[in-house]
Nucleic acid binder design. Structure first.
Lengths: 143, 143
DNA sequence: GTGGTTTAGATGATGATGTCTACTATAGTT
DNA sequence: AACTATAGTAGACATCATCATCTAAACCAC
C-alpha cells in the first residue's frame, strides 16, 4: 500500500541542503555544512561533550568525526579539554570565534526554516518532526 | 517556534539509507543506491523517459546522471532508444535483467517501508509525505 | 534561410560525505 | 595480570554533488 516515503524524503533533504548551502556563506569560513552541524552541537554542550557523545547524537562515523574536529581545532573554533574521568577521551570547547560562526549559522538556518514552513501550521510542523523521529527510531530498533 | 526541522530529518534519512543498504544486496549487483533510484524510474516510464526528465524528477545533477546511465548501460540493465522528436536526447529502456533487479529492489524497499511505518497510521504517513512535499516545494520556489 | 541563443547530454576535475579496516591507549572485568 | 571493550586516530576507498566546459541539435528572431 502507501506509496514510497523515501522519494519525497530524498527530495526534501536535497532541497534543504541546497538552500542551506546558499543561505550560509560557508566558503568564507573555510568550513562545510557538516562542520557546522558539529560546531552547533559543541556550542550547545560547551565543554561538556566528547567526540563519542557527538557520534551517538548524529550517527556520524567516528573516523569522520575525528577528522572534522581536527579541522575545527586547526581553524581555532574548537579546543580539546582533558577529561579527568577518562584519559582516552576529552571534552570539546568552543572559542569566541566559533561562537560567532554559530550565531551567523543560526540566523541562516532560521531563514531556511521559515521558508520551509511557509503555509504550514505549528501543529503540522510539530507532527512532522514527531513522525520523523518515530520513523528513525523504528529503523534504529531494527538493528 | 518549533525547533529545528533539519536535525531529525538528517537523522531519518541517514537511517533510511543505512537500512536500505542492508536490506538490498547491492554489492552483488554492482550498483549503488543512486543507480537503483534511477533504474526504478526508468522501469516505471520504460521507453518514455529521457535523461532530462529524470533530472527534473530527482534533481540529480545532469552530469552525475549521465554517468549513472552510462554505467547502467554498461551493465546491460538499460539501453538508449532514439528519440525521433529530438536528436539531442534519447529515450531510456530497461532490460529484462534490469527489471529483475527492480523487482528485488521493490521487495527490499517495502520491507524497510513497513519497518519505518510501524506504530503509525496511514493518515499519519500520508500527512508526512504531504508535508515533505510541501516543504520541498517551498524551498524550490525560493530559487 | 542565417545567425544568435538555448537546451540535452557528455566529460573531467574537485569537494563533501560515508564507510571500513587497522591501530594505539586507556578503561573495565574477572 | 590477562582479557575484553571502548575512545579516538589515520589511511584507503566508494559514493554523491557540483561546476565548468564542450558538442550537437533545437529554437527563435529577423
Amino acid at each position: 500500500m502507501s506509496d514510497n516515503i523515501k522519494e519525497p524524503l530524498f527530495n526534501l533533504l536535497h532541497s534543504v541542503k541546497r538552500s542551506l548551502r546558499q543561505a550560509i556563506e560557508v566558503g568564507d569560513l573555510g568550513i562545510t555544512p557538516l562542520h557546522m552541524r558539529v560546531l552547533k552541537i559543541i556550542s550547545l554542550y560547551n565543554q561538556k561533550v566528547t567526540a563519542n557523545d557527538i557520534v551517538q547524537k548524529t550517527l556520524i562515523d567516528k573516523a569522520q568525526l575525528a577528522r572534522l574536529i581536527k579541522e575545527l581545532i586547526g581553524l581555532g573554533y574548537v579546543s580539546k579539554l582533558d577529561n579527568p574521568h577518562d584519559k582516552r577521551s576529552y571534552y570539546l570547547g568552543i572559542s569566541g570565534e566559533g561562537e560567532q560562526i554559530v550565531k551567523q549559522l543560526r540566523l541562516a538556518e532560521n531563514r531556511v526554516n521559515e521558508t520551509m514552513k511557509m503555509g504550514l501550521t505549528d501543529q503540522e510542523i510539530a507532527d512532522f518532526v514527531r513522525l520523523a523521529k518515530h520513523m528513525a527510531q523504528n529503523l534504529h530498533d531494527q538493528d
